Simulated assay, not measured.
Amino acid sequence: METFFKVAGWTTAAILGAAVWNVFPEYRTIISSILVALFICYVFSVLVGVTVRRLIGDELLELRLQTNATADRLELIDRKVTAVLRDALEQRQARTQTLPFRPIVSARTPEAVRSRDPIGSVRNQITETVNQ
């Protein structure tokens, strides 16, 4: 659709330009000067567009290369950190396996719990007082 509007616009401009060229011959110098100026501006805008696209393409390529280099460095750091953490885990597992085994003594007898619980001892005293 955009191409259609461009073709229609240029065709209309050409027809109107030919009509003005033939109807007003005294303005031919002005019309030809305007056409030359428009052509120069059009060529200049095309050159600027091509140059900008090339510069942006070069910058994008450079950014892509930098990103790839950064990703490679991050991957290397990740491998190193993984190796260090794996080594630390192996050392920890080896250290826990060589420790002497201490059996855990269950301190869940009612007397042991009461002796460690100050609030429980107060509660027990209140219960004994109420029971008497």
Rank of each mutant, 00 (worst) to 15 (best):
I34K: 02
T12H: 06
R114F: 15
V130N: 01
A88I: 13
E59V: 11
N68A: 09
L47G: 12
F101Y: 14
T67A: 09
I119T: 09
A14C: 09
R64Q: 06
A71Y: 06
T12K: 06
D72L: 08
S45F: 12
L60D: 01
Q66N: 02
I56T: 06
R54D: 02
P100H: 04
N124Y: 07
R28K: 04
D78S: 13
N124K: 05
F24I: 14
E2D: 10
T29I: 12
T96P: 01
A13K: 05
E128Q: 05
A112R: 11
P103I: 11
F44V: 12
T29M: 08
M1Y: 14
V48I: 15
T129H: 02
R53Y: 12
R102N: 14
R114Q: 04
I34V: 15
V7G: 05
D78H: 09
R95Q: 14
T96F: 13
W10H: 12
Y42W: 10
M1T: 14
T127Q: 06
R73G: 00
T67P: 00
L74C: 02
T96K: 11
P118G: 00
E90Y: 10
W21H: 04
F39K: 07
I30H: 09
I126D: 01
G57N: 02
T109G: 11
G9N: 12
L85N: 11
E2L: 15
V46G: 00
R102V: 15
I119L: 15
D72N: 05
A13L: 10
Q125H: 06
L65C: 02
L76Y: 00
L35W: 10
F39Y: 05
V36M: 08
A94T: 11
E26S: 15
D72Q: 06
V43Q: 05
P103R: 11
C41Y: 11
S33R: 13
F24P: 00
E59N: 04
V122Y: 02
E75V: 00
L47E: 06
G120V: 07
A83S: 09
G9S: 11
L89N: 11
L63Q: 06
V23S: 09
G17Y: 03
V23T: 13
L65M: 07
R102L: 15
T129V: 04
V84K: 07
R92N: 13
L47W: 05
